[in-house]
């Protein structure tokens, strides 16, 4: 019997998408789910999404939005991909910060930056920061450095909202250490086995060229990984009372 687990990320207060994705995971008989954070932001139901994650006791690490909301910052400090995203992001922050309950803020504050299971490491952005983007085309050296220095074989991340699986094979790191005034460098090189970065994309705010929510399923035994794109095109409608005071922070809600 194989042991599969699902990884979700960037839920962004989109309750309908979260419910649809979790139902899809349940239907596959997958019991272990890990969440890579960003429960809030953009979408209209931050408290409901936080409470859903709490009810289901899903191990979750802290995302950049989760961190900034509890720190009282008026915007996520990450660079936005466009003027539109920046303006929506600022509005969503103000709106969500006023509405997230104190109890839920305490929960967000309690989330760890990383989760680890054996040689699997789960982070929101990178092992260094919730705000760092591990983009699929970043240099192989930098990517390998992030995985290796965190002591992981497979690094699960989100943040970019674009799912991908990147294999880093035949890597080596050469380190040269030069002490003050001493020009006799000591140099060490090590060859590394294959490392992987798996980005789960986004459940609540996909940006991979389609409106489908994404998550990944990973088989602990074989290492097989699949990116699941799940259509959430017929979500439950947002309550009219919510529509009235909700600023347009995300399309279609």
């Amino acid at each position: 019997m194989t042991m599969s687990h699902a990884v979700i990320s960037c839920l962004h207060a989109n309750l309908a998408a979260c419910e649809a994705v979790l139902a899809d995971i349940d239907q596959q008989g997958i019991d272990t789910i890990t969440c890579l954070g960003d429960l809030v932001g953009y979408g209209p139901q931050p408290n409901e999404v936080i409470e859903l994650v709490r009810e289901r006791s899903i191990p979750t690490c802290q995302g950049c939005w989760d961190e900034d909301i509890i720190d009282g910052l008026n915007a996520c400090e990450c660079s936005y991909p466009s003027q539109l995203a920046e303006r929506r992001g600022h509005r969503a922050h103000h709106w969500a910060a006023e509405r997230i309950t104190e109890d839920n803020k305490v929960f967000l504050a309690s989330l760890p930056m990383t989760l680890r299971r054996d040689r699997l490491l789960f982070v929101h952005g990178s092992p260094n920061s919730q705000h760092e983007y591990l983009l699929p085309d970043m240099s192989a050296f930098a990517a390998l450095e992030r995985v290796e220095t965190a002591g992981a074989e497979t690094l699960f991340c989100g943040h970019t909202h674009q799912p991908y699986v990147r294999e880093l094979s035949e890597g080596s790191i050469r380190v040269s250490v030069q002490t003050n005034g001493n020009h006799n460098d000591s140099e060490q090189a090590m060859t590394l086995p294959m490392r992987r970065i798996i980005n789960a994309g986004s459940v609540g705010e996909p940006r991979h060229g389609s409106t489908k929510a994404t998550y990944v399923v990973h088989d602990d035994d074989s290492g097989a990984v699949s990116v699941v794109k799940w259509s959430t095109t017929s979500p439950k409608p947002v309550k009219p009372s919510l529509r009235r005071d909700y600023p347009r922070c995300s399309p279609g809600v």
Binding site: P81, S82, Q83, L84, G209, S210, P251
Partner: peptide
């Protein structure tokens, strides 16, 4: 237009957001 914003807006427009 901000080019990246146009890209997002057009994607939303033709995918049923409005």
């Amino acid at each position: 237009w901000d080019p990246n914003s146009l890209s997002s807006f057009w994607f939303e427009l033709v995918n049923g957001a409005y």
